[in-house]
Design a protein around this nucleic acid. Sequence first.
DNA 1: ACTTGCTCCTGTAGCCACTACAGGAACTAA
DNA 2: TTAGTTCCTGTAGTGGCTACAGGAGCAAGT
Lengths: 141, 141
Amino acid sequence: MFTIGKASEQSGVNIETIRYYEREGIVPKPGRSAGGRRLYSPDEIAKLRFVRRCRDLGFPISIIQTFLSLTEQDDRSCGEVKTLAENHLDEINAKIENLTRLREALLSLSSNCDDGTADCPMLDSLMKDGFGESGSEQSRH
Amino acid sequence: MFTIGKASEQSGVNIETIRYYEREGIVPKPGRSAGGRRLYSPDEIAKLRFVRRCRDLGFPISIIQTFLSLTEQDDRSCGEVKTLAENHLDEINAKIENLTRLREALLSLSSNCDDGTADCPMLDSLMKDGFGESGSEQSRH
DNA sequence: ACTTGCTCCTGTAGCCACTACAGGAACTAA
DNA sequence: TTAGTTCCTGTAGTGGCTACAGGAGCAAGT
């Protein structure tokens, strides 16, 4: 059994984050020592590491909770996992596309932007009327 | 002069967000009608639109505030803008790289994941000891 | 036995940039 | 006048943590 500090080291999850996961019911409450300290088994540490790796892959907590419940009941888990992973891949691809378009926009805006000029062409075009948009979009995640 | 609804339409900024920007001092407080309603001039609407466009480009509010103060005093603004834009471009590029690596990782993980299997190889490898990491990293933005 | 210094505990508040109410006041059109 | 719409303030919630404050427990050295 390991204290929270060791569990943090071994799982790569910050101590405060571990306590947060417990508060939120993302991982089960561990046992306690006589003095009231949390004690983690290797299995519980593996679970923490699993959550961190999923977070590193960009999965939101809600999906990770589904993953965790799928690992409990080992009943036809793989199909559902694959679907969730594919949806997540689609989101990642969409983000990459967005960022790439954004980069192009920013590049072309800042390219006219030379040191020494009094009026900045980038700020100018961002302030102008009807510049890169077709109407009032009003959509942001 | 326009009410907040028209200002929202014309700038593309949500009504609640406009009020939030005002509360936070990101845009100056507009005048009010006899009945206490906010009234926006075309210039103030242009400022809101500017903020939205910068947000669309991914700039954080803190940077946008710098931009706004630079547009007030038209003193050698362009050099500073260019630097901020380049730093932001670096961040965007870093994000794209991260997401691309993430996509590869997720693809290779989920590729072994076929429907019908009892134990999911993706969840399996995420749960295992020492799989894709060199030690205890502990670094997340 | 006592002290030093580390780890741990709970509880609360802050981060970013919004978004979503609730409960009421003020306009506008029929 | 009345119904419907827009606006007002104030507060709380979102996600996923992170950062305290103020105290208790514990291990090693003297």
